[in-house]
Amino acid sequence: MFELSKEGVEFVKKEMQRYETKRSAIIPALYKVQEENGGWVSPECVTYLSQLMDLPEVWINEVLNFYTMFNKEPVGKYHVQVCCNVSCAMNGGRELADHLCKELNIKDGRHSEDGRYTLSRVECLGSCGTAPMMQVNDKYYENLTKESAVQILKELP
């Protein structure tokens, strides 16, 4: 059974007070759950949040499934999101993603075999002037080359 930590519960309760409606706290609460559940939100997390927040499961599940930043399946320690939208595509974003798959042993195009990386090809991240770029968990890495990207990822702790 998934449960938030004490701090996590406090955070969610505070967020429920923070906005005009407690429903607004669904997004921040899901972020918190994702953080504490190893990077993704499982169905049992939804049930848990529904009880904690006293909101219908379906509301939480709708939000969970609408937004791309919530992961509906387990992800690696580093979630590498490579932008493949227009400006990045024009500057080698797609080739960069392919290259990373090869270099990081990501055979199915999603997860590296050691579970360290999950790779997603994503839409515009608002870093078009510094293409190509990738987001690793929360952080942006810009003006990448194939080599620099691999190096950055390999040097992560």
Binding site: S24, I27, Y31, Y67, F70
Partner: peptide, 18 residues
Amino acid sequence: AGAYICGEETALLSSLEG
């Protein structure tokens, strides 16, 4: 939380409403 459509003002408000 990741949705281009939220840049549309009423979608943004829906999102802000949770």
